[in-house]
Design a protein around this nucleic acid. Structure first.
Lengths: 131, 131
DNA sequence: ATTTCAATTTAGAATAAGTATAAATCTATT
DNA sequence: AATAGATTTATACTTATTCTAAATTGAAAT
């Protein structure tokens, strides 16, 4: 199924995720839609997010919080979360293939990929902490 | 707080997690408690799991499913999930420090650690698939 | 232009996982 | 035995998400 049917609602949801500087949750997307003058049903936002995810236009991130976040960058990359302020940033440094190979060897699995959530303290929070 | 107060319920919950060959969810723990003749309140099971986690006797795993899983191995290690059957296995091959250092450099974060969920197909599912 | 049919949206109910609360119970100490 | 503190229980609540059935939309066929 290569055809993509971008309805008004799906396009609007996509625009929010694409324009976001952060990694919004479904609730964030909902709020920002309202700010832009839309008022779609909750179910529609979830449906749209799933549709866009299925079509590989966005990615769903499960970073260990209760709510999923969404990311318009669909290329292979990881994430880092600030333990202090909760900010999420991208990690593009690729996972060493060699490590994956060793994991495959250890477990007997055929390894497809890995989801990594790095934890740390962001630059801003570190400079605040010093005081 | 080094003192650990293992009530009957906490001990029973701990026993379930320690004896488990898999990585049970809270609901799994609940069911296995019933199998062993216990009948604790749901809240008590959650409280006990949190207590044991706080005391570092077990670990809470967030593997991207809706429910948390629990692991009696508390040493630093990662997990691999079979995309076919859902099985979860341990990964003890450590992520290279050098990779974490490069992530710190890329992001400007002080890196504390990483949660990794590797995805793949386990040996059993692969041999079944071949047929 | 009208009918038709599938896809989509809507509003609201339902579900799943986990947390909060207040009363009851247990446990250790005086 | 009396008190106090911690824990458990039952139940209500919250949050994130999915489901459902009816209404709406939009494209294709008449």
């Amino acid at each position: 199924m290569k055809t993509i049917n971008l309805t008004t609602q799906r396009q609007a949801v996509y625009d929010i995720v694409r324009d976001a500087a952060d990694h919004p949750t479904a609730a964030d997307v909902m709020n920002r839609l309202v700010e832009r003058g839309h008022s779609f049903a909750y179910g529609t936002v979830y449906n749209s997010l799933r549709y866009l995810t299925d079509k590989d236009m966005i990615r769903e991130l499960k970073l260990g919080e209760t709510a999923s976040r969404y990311d318009a960058r669909t290329d292979d990359h990881q994430h880092i979360v600030c333990e202090v302020c909760g900010k999420v940033d991208e990690v593009t440094t690729a996972i060493p293939e060699e490590w994956l190979a060793r994991v495959a060897e250890e477990t007997g699995y055929e390894v497809e990929g890995a989801h990594i959530v790095v934890e740390g303290v962001c630059a801003e929070c570190r400079s605040k902490r010093k005081k």
